[in-house]
Design a protein around this nucleic acid. Structure first.
Lengths: 348, 348
DNA sequence: TGCTTTTGTCAAAGCGCTTTGGAACGGCGT
DNA sequence: ACGCCGTTCCAAAGCGCTTTGACAAAAGCA
């Protein structure tokens, strides 16, 4: 069934049917109803390829999936993708996923853009001074970045969470509880979110005249194994930290294992706050000691990004704007007052 | 730059240029060279949408991404997707990913098929008597399944690994080492691969007159946490198993944690063989006690599936066939002779 | 030489949609 | 009665490609 057949069946022109379907105002409401009814009965579906050719819009958004032979397909990416997908499917959009070596993301993105089968681009895993940004700007194709790029002019459309504030607030809570020795279990050091979280923590410490020693920072991929080994190192320090900030519940999973194996009590000997991306199978409230977290749903971010990107493409409208989400600081049992000996030793 | 302009530039007809580009035989080699040269110089790229409309081929394959609010975006899926993607990008194909609740996979698949923006479908996570199979067969659209569906007529195109043989062989190795008490850490019980792996193990045991008690089987999602808790249960049994078969290195990760925490030695007190999907960040040789595994690369399967599916679509050729990969049994340090007390008690 | 094949090329007809530029129609004011 | 609008619809022109059917030119064959 195609438009022509449908219009003949209705005794209308293709024009009118097309307009009825696409919500144009110049068609009589009664006529539109008839058309819609016929569509239901016949199960007519417009041919995507024809629509694309006619409108010049592909109805799809492109993204680069970081992947190399040794690259871990991480849960955060999957979770985010799910959000994107949920929204996309509602609008009959789809993605073109271009797998690419993380070292060639610029190239991959450019290839995607000129391939002509996407209307818009999405990028994530932002770094400081990210080289993709100037490229994207030169492209005259809508794009939206998840995160930001420290060191770049902030004149590009993005959706980000306020990482700095999140870890600043988390650190302040721990400071108020009397902690003075902090450690940071962070994501890869070149990524923007990791830099900002570190900055947030450092800023909060600086207000109290404290600083974060180099050996109390760990920058790794966010897997539980790496969380565990980093935490083990922290615990072996002569003056071990009592307050841990952690960039992911996945890292926290490993870290807590290390705490337990060291015979220490989470929430008593060690206080820990993790950032919670709301990964479905890793709920902070289900940890044996429920986790205090800074929370912001990765999946929700995916949905929102898809919304904005699709909106932009559909109405050929203004490029999407900047959006900064606050995280929620949710206090559970993994944080508590600094242990006694710490209070004795501690302070400024 | 479009075909028309290019052909005018060359003083040829659109027909000839198109044919030269698409490798048709009826064009002079010298002419083809000229065309190719011009393409290089002008950077001409055929418009995808127009090609689609003209050929009726979308150049994309569809797949359903299982996702629900509580569904874990698992690493196995990501890893497989990476393989698919690598191959797809080589042929300028892309996927349409339709996220769907695992309970509505049939519906999602159908919607994908009639949406008209895919040429072929791919399905995974096969179950026994999988309801998607009859639906797919009725669809007259090429498809390929990863895995098989026990209980269904095996008349559909698939790529699978020989799960039964894998675990049969693994079990035999352990039997030869003198083990008699086995346990199975398996994936979700409704999935085909899990059923077959269990069958393989049971068959090997039966040859020795042994059987697998119900409480020595665990069927769960393949996360390390669940691997750990299941293993803990096994270890608390009065006559605890000494030989463990494990459906994923992710499960094994947790299981081994349980072994260590129980103060037992892997490869001495407990022998363990895991199936290794070759996840980049979970290499069995990097475990503190290197893991004996049955190996088959998930990513390679992705590549192969993309190859076959794309091949089928491109030449409109025969539907793809059936393919069964053998796994490799790779012996490392996590397997050893059954401990003494077991040999005394044990045997047929 | 005259005939049929083969080779290399072309003009034109789609593919199924959107969109432009009218046209028909009835109601309105004058 | 006339012209003028606003509404509702239409015919036809693309969008950029592939493919069919035809046709010269070159080649093969008797």
């Amino acid at each position: 069934m195609n438009l022509k057949q449908l219009s003949e069946l209705l005794g209308l022109s293709q024009t009118t049917v097309s307009r009825a379907l696409n919500g144009y105002p110049e068609v009589n409401e009664a006529t539109r109803e008839r058309v819609l009814q016929a569509v239901k009965e016949t199960g007519y579906r417009p041919n995507k390829a024809a629509q694309r050719l006619a409108t010049g819009k592909a109805g799809s958004i492109g993204l680069v999936m970081p992947t190399a032979p040794d690259h871990y397909s991480d849960v955060h990416f999957g979770e985010f993708l799910t959000g994107l997908g949920e929204e996309a499917v509602r609008h009959d959009f789809h993605f073109v996923i271009m797998p690419a070596d993380p070292n060639d993301e610029v190239g991959a993105l450019r290839r995607l853009a000129i391939s002509g089968n996407v209307d818009a681009l999405f990028v994530a895993y932002m770094r400081a001074h990210d080289p993709r940004l100037p490229m994207l700007k030169s492209l005259s194709m809508p794009f939206l970045v998840h995160g930001r790029s420290i060191g770049s002019e902030p004149d590009y459309p993005y959706l980000d969470i306020d990482n700095e504030a999140a870890f600043y607030d988390a650190a302040r809570l721990l400071l108020q509880l009397g902690h003075t020795r902090f450690a940071l279990l962070n994501g890869p050091g070149h990524l923007d979110f990791a830099i900002r979280r570190k900055n947030g923590l450092v800023a909060a410490l600086a207000e109290r005249g404290l600083s974060l020693p180099e050996d109390c920072m760990s920058h790794t991929s966010m897997t539980d194994e790496l969380g565990q080994s980093a935490m083990e190192r922290f615990l072996q320090m002569p003056e071990r930290p009592t307050a841990i900030l952690c960039s992911s519940t996945v890292l926290a999973l490993g870290a807590i294992r290390a705490v337990n194996q060291a015979g220490l009590k989470l929430g008593e000997d060690i206080s820990l706050i993790a950032h919670d991306d709301v990964l479905p199978h890793l709920k902070p409230e289900n940890f044996s000691v429920p986790l205090t977290t800074t929370r912001s749903s990765l999946r929700a971010a995916g949905v929102r990004i898809a919304q904005r990107l699709i909106g932009t493409v559909k109405q050929d409208g203004p490029f999407p704007e900047q959006e900064l989400w606050k995280t929620e600081l949710i206090v559970r049992a993994s944080t508590g007052p600094a242990p006694r000996q710490d209070q004795n030793l501690g302070g400024v």
